[in-house]
Lab assay of single mutants.
Amino acid sequence: ELSWTAEAEKMLGKVPFFVRKKVRKNTDNYAREIGEPVVTADVFRKAKEHLG
């Protein structure tokens, strides 16, 4: 699991709890794919757009 900024964690907190774990995993995987060592708010937004 990658490191997350406080802002990205806050955004994740707005995701319904029953899918939060999956969203975190998918976002981590997306960040790795694009070469990001940390999940930022920008990476979170891009993952959301990319993953739907």
Rank of each mutant, 00 (worst) to 15 (best):
F18K: 12
E36K: 05
K14G: 06
K22D: 11
G35L: 05
A41D: 06
N29M: 13
H50G: 07
N26Y: 15
E36Q: 08
K25I: 14
R24T: 02
E49S: 10
F18C: 15
E49L: 12
L2F: 05
E1I: 10
K14W: 07
D42Y: 06
K22C: 15
G13A: 15
S3C: 12
R20Y: 03
H50K: 10
A31W: 01
V39N: 00
K21S: 15
K46W: 08
T27L: 07
D28M: 08
V19P: 03
E9A: 07
G13N: 15
E33M: 15
I34Y: 09
E49R: 13
K25R: 13
F18Y: 14
R45C: 08
A47R: 03
K48H: 12
V19H: 15
E33T: 10
E33L: 12
R24L: 04
K10C: 13
E49F: 10
E49I: 12
V38E: 07
E7A: 09
E33S: 14
E9C: 10
K46S: 08
L51P: 06
A31Q: 00
M11G: 03
G13W: 09
V43A: 03
A31Y: 00
K14E: 14
K14H: 08
A47V: 05
E49A: 13
K10A: 14
D42N: 06
E9W: 12
A31I: 01
P37H: 10
K25Q: 14
W4C: 00
A8K: 00
A6M: 10
G13T: 10
L51G: 09
G13D: 13
T5W: 01
N26H: 15
K48T: 14
D42I: 06
G52C: 15
E36A: 15
T5R: 02
K48C: 14
G13P: 05
E33R: 10
F17I: 13
S3E: 14
A41T: 06
D42A: 08
F18I: 09
D28N: 10
A41M: 07
W4G: 00
A8T: 02
G52L: 14
N29D: 13
G52N: 13
E36T: 07
K14L: 13
G35W: 03
R45L: 14
K25D: 13
D28I: 07
V43F: 05
K46T: 06
E49M: 12
A47Q: 03
V19L: 15
T40L: 01
